[in-house]
């Protein structure tokens, strides 16, 4: 395998460059996926049937906590990649661990929020609105949860194998994934929650 030392580790082999571009294109597909979920949410927002509507269930506190957690985790994983480029293995691992802990916090708050909704009589089966809401939030939450597992695997590999072209590549791609989830959350934050609460 040819390793090009003039580039950062994650770009250093041809396969690595292919992987990164491939993941970007996958993110393009994810944009279309979330766009469809957003479209269905916007269309079904008024389809509340006999259940509560968006303004009645959304709470600002959990929203602010979730947003803060996710934005910060996006920052820390950015620092993780930066540390990786400096060749600082331990710092990289630590930043990744902090990121995952923040992500775990986010998922925890989301689960708590869902239980609140269910207590208020808004379940997956209540109405078109609730189905669309839970599916949009759930898909994002499932992505974050998947990220927690994926990230753990990468941390394990960083610990056991160190910073190699392969692990660096995986870590970088994981960071792209994590930032992307943050971007999706920004849109959920703005056009699901805040738009619903004004």
């Amino acid at each position: 395998m040819k390793v090009d030392h003039s580039q950062p580790l994650e770009y250093s082999t041809e396969q690595n460059r292919l992987n990164i571009l491939g993941f970007w294109i996958f993110l393009g597909a994810e944009i279309a996926l979330f766009a469809t979920l957003f479209a269905s949410y916007f269309l079904l927002r008024n389809g509340t049937g006999s259940g509560p509507s968006d303004g009645e269930v959304f709470v600002i506190d959990t929203l602010m906590i979730q947003t803060f957690l996710l934005l910060t985790s996006s920052f820390t994983i950015g620092l993780g990649v930066h540390a990786m480029r400096l060749g600082r293995k331990t710092a990289t691992i630590n930043f990744f661990i902090v990121t995952l802990l923040l992500g775990l916090g986010f998922v925890g708050v989301e689960i708590y929020e869902f239980t609140q909704y269910i207590d208020e009589g808004l379940t997956l089966q209540t109405s078109g609105f609730s189905s669309a809401l839970f599916t949009l939030l759930g898909t994002h939450g499932a992505h974050v949860t998947f990220g927690l597992f994926w990230g753990s695997f990468i941390i394990y590999q960083l610990i056991t194998r160190g910073l190699t072209p392969e692990t660096a590549n995986k870590s970088f791609i994981f960071s792209l994934y994590w930032h992307f989830l943050d971007v999706v959350w920004i849109f959920i934050f703005s056009f699901v929650y805040l738009k619903g609460m004004i």
Binding site: L44, S131, A132, T135
Partner: peptide, 28 residues
């Protein structure tokens, strides 16, 4: 991805009783 989402919704309507495409409870 659009098909993926539509099929997932259709599956949920059929298996979990959601209301994406139903004719009651605000489905479309």
């Amino acid at each position: 991805p659009v098909l993926t989402v539509a099929l997932a919704m259709g599956t949920m309507d059929r298996l979990f009783g959601t209301h994406f495409f139903s004719i009651d409870n605000g489905g479309m």
